[in-house]
Amino acid sequence: MTTLLYNHPVCMEHDMGYGHPECPDRLVAIYGALKQPAFAALQWREAPAATLEQLTRVHPQRYLDRIMAAVPKDGLRALDGDTALCPSSGEAALRAAGAACAAVDEIMAGEADNAFCAVRPPGHHAEPGRAMGFCVFNNVAVGAVHARKVYGLDRVAIIDFDVHHGNGTQAVFEHQPEYMYLSSHQSPLYPGTGRSSERGVGNIVNLPLPPYSGSEEIRNGWATLLAPALRAFRPDFIFISAGFDAHRLDPLAQLSFTEEDYAWLTREILAIAAEFSKGRVVSTLEGGYSLSALAASVAVHVKALMEAPALAAQAAARIA
């Protein structure tokens, strides 16, 4: 069985201006790592553009119209102080959201076990009607709703280990008990949401971590808060908002995760996916702004995804 890797050249053309940390080189670094022989078994797929139907399940039509109309013929068009569109950004954003939906389709068709979407712009800050924090469409939310609406799944979970809280994803799902959103993030930090007291309809689980938290804090938080909540939810499908900016080398925050923490977290998520979700996992790229740390962290994350079926089989054999 198979791990899919979604990408598209236009995702590297989305460029928010000289020096912006959410830059095309992030994907160059990631592809560099994933082209190594150890990843030969990865199946590369071109990310299709999300359809209007897929997008309007999360974003109002008038928001989509406004974004597409804002795509400039040349130069940059600012959406907020940190987020901008260049001429390629519209198509990149469509394909970033489309990747998650296509990955769901392939996995539900039994063509693959899991998938990683190496796409940009990222998505978890995008609210239904508002682009912010480098995000235009909420890719992971579009994928999650696609999984439930098209395949009739009862419960879909999203785990977000980006260093920033996914205010957009939380806003999409906080009134919908069919979805669970679980996030670990630094606090205080942008965007300021994600307090433990924000619980939605019992389907939002926030783990704010103080600056300088590292392996011990995230592993404890996972074991005592996030994993028990996720298990109790019994997800039919798991999405990962995979941001790697909690790494100790990242310049945009002050947490101290290492590659090994990302490998560990990924395996933990995969174990729960094997137990409840038939191993179905779609992971989509969010942040991560140290190019070397990003490449190394994505590598161990994707490696864990590729090894998931073997690990699950071993676990099953042990139980039998």
Binding site: P21, G81, D82, G133, F134, H164, P188, L189, Y190, P191, G192, L252, A253, Q254
Partner: peptide, 10 residues
């Protein structure tokens, strides 16, 4: 310093 107002200090 970083604040919740913006992902990157301006």
């Amino acid at each position: 310093i970083f604040t919740p107002d913006s992902p990157i200090p301006r």
